[in-house]
Computed example of a mutant assay.
Amino acid sequence: MPNKNLPTASVTISFTTEVADLGEEAYALQAEVNEEDNDGETRFIFGEAAPIFRVYKSKNIASINFYPSDGSIGGGGGGGTANVEEIVTFANSRTTNTSYPIKTGTLNATALGNADLGTITAVGPATIQCSKKSSGPTDPLVGVYKINYQSDFTRHSLTGVSKPSGFGEGDFDSYPVHIHVLGLI
């Protein structure tokens, strides 16, 4: 039997992102719940403060629309800039993708191991490229790099999620809310 003093139902948020009419140009769009914006939490109890989430978008996306499965989307306290560190792999290709859009002029790359693929530069909103070119099958482009860069984001909140009747009667049920984020060019 659950402890009556502990919450037994929470809200878990997931995302999908899409950019309308991609055409030939590259775009980057990412959404996430970040614990820094939510007092260390990524799951939320019904009735608590509205969960804050971040949206990272490349500069060539003019606006975004939200389609939540429950609740509504509000402002979340403006925006900011995240310092991102990640490990990327070049595997028989001069390019690879990053997790977030890269703020112009902030990319720094360090080779891990013995790979030397030359200078690493941003060539798209979330695409980087090495300067080395392969001279054939005996000279593959393979390397692992630690990269650091900055990415701008806006904050948004999820409000008005309604607890379904009878939900949370079991031990620590989790109510999923999905938000589809559509970028418009």
Score class of each variant (00 low, 15 high):
Asp37Glu: 14
Ala26Gln: 04
Phe46Asn: 07
Phe167Tyr: 14
Ser162Gln: 13
Gln150Leu: 11
Ser14Lys: 01
Gly40Ser: 13
Arg94Ile: 02
Tyr100Thr: 03
Thr121Leu: 01
Tyr100His: 12
Gln150Glu: 13
Phe172Ser: 15
Thr110Cys: 03
Gln30Arg: 13
Ala49Met: 15
Gly47Ser: 05
Gly77Tyr: 05
Val181Ser: 14
Val161Ser: 04
Ala91Asn: 09
Glu85Met: 08
Lys132Glu: 09
Ser99Tyr: 07
Gln129Ala: 09
Lys146Phe: 07
His180Ser: 08
Leu158Asn: 05
Pro2Ala: 05
Val19Asn: 10
Ser14Cys: 00
Ala9Arg: 03
Gly160Arg: 03
Pro2Tyr: 02
Pro101Thr: 01
Tyr27Ile: 04
Thr154Phe: 06
Ile87Ser: 09
Glu36Val: 11
Ala26Pro: 00
Glu41Arg: 15
Ser93Ile: 01
Glu36Lys: 15
His156Val: 06
Tyr27Lys: 10
Lys163Gly: 05
Gly75Ile: 04
Ala126Val: 04
Thr16Glu: 07
Thr106Met: 10
Val123Thr: 11
Ala62Arg: 12
Thr12Lys: 02
Gly118Pro: 05
Ser134Tyr: 10
Phe66Cys: 11
Pro2Val: 05
Ile179Tyr: 15
Thr119Arg: 04
Gly80Ser: 02
Arg94Pro: 02
Ala9Ile: 00
Phe46Cys: 07
Val177Tyr: 11
Lys146Tyr: 08
Ala122Lys: 05
